[in-house]
Design a protein around this nucleic acid. Sequence first.
DNA 1: GTGTTTTCGAACACCGTGTATTATAATGAC
DNA 2: GTCATTATAATACACGGTGTTCGAAAACAC
Lengths: 191, 191
Amino acid sequence: MNEDTKKEDRRVRRTRKILTQALTELLQRKQVNEITVKELTDLADMNRGTFYQYYRDIYDMLEKIQDEMFEKLDAIFSLPKDGDVTEQTGPILMDLFRFIEENQEMCRVLLSPNGNMNFLHRLYEVLRNKCLHLSLGSEPMASKEDFDYRYTFMVYGVAGLIRSWVSRNCPEKPEQMAELTNHLIISGGIA
Amino acid sequence: MNEDTKKEDRRVRRTRKILTQALTELLQRKQVNEITVKELTDLADMNRGTFYQYYRDIYDMLEKIQDEMFEKLDAIFSLPKDGDVTEQTGPILMDLFRFIEENQEMCRVLLSPNGNMNFLHRLYEVLRNKCLHLSLGSEPMASKEDFDYRYTFMVYGVAGLIRSWVSRNCPEKPEQMAELTNHLIISGGIA
DNA sequence: GTGTTTTCGAACACCGTGTATTATAATGAC
DNA sequence: GTCATTATAATACACGGTGTTCGAAAACAC
């Protein structure tokens, strides 16, 4: 029994899981704003009042699900790595794409047109702070703003890759995507 | 009296304008899902029933506002250009950034964390189909998928530039942004 | 001015919301 | 297995926004 589960009753895990599954299913066919708590709990075959024991409303639920995802992601990036390769983006990107593949269903939904802009922004922050520490020093000269725009260009580019990948149901392997990404951000004139 | 206004009663224009202004104001301080029709029409000092004469609900309104924006944008890109410079992205990007600057308030809201993923996707489509016709043929060899990912990387990169720009209240001139963008997509290894 | 169109004010039923209460069932510790 | 604890179910409730309707008043185009 690990750190995550020991605090939770088995019923709580079950309830959260079923609710999340139901929400994922609903999000695949309609927008968040069209989803009611009643509808969700009906689909989950669950008492409506139980929902409110965990979430304030549908949006709160979606946010909490995202919180969980980014907590896990942070945990992955906080793991000690072999040797001292903290400057290498390759292995980090590998971890990233593996994680996204594992959570592709939710990622696909959240990055779709019906998705959530906040999710994209949080992904952007993670990419920027944890995955893509690049030195743009090789460029001859650039202002602070210039640097920032280049960085943004690159980070959003990677976010776009991820969106495209999951929307196609992840046909490429995470390793391939990590390699492609690495290539694009290096040969992409921003390195 | 031009094509756009002749169909509309002055009152209709006024009503639409006031409602749009009120929505823009509300969107700056709260999320879409927290906005009610009652609240909107109260702020607009307008009968609630009048709202329903034009929109089904808040989301419908937001969508129709976006429709208008992209219609205008399409119109701009359909304008005949001097000479035969259809292969040049520079002037097109200039038009694009000028348009975004003019509509920066709404763009800022729609690209913020409280924003609308559908708007980003539509922007993506416009960029891809109208603004960034690039030949990636100079690359030695690439599969169809590879090409697509590179393209996505670039287009999302530009979308990121736009988001970053409007979120800072457009400190740079549209011309500067067009130039920067042009530089990034050309020297950006994708050319 | 006249006919038309829009907005307003008011009323209405409807339904999801959020909360509370009690009873029942599942769980974990022993 | 027993027991105390905790989660879920069942039900009821008031509340408020929704979406629609109607006639009256106002604004409009000509």
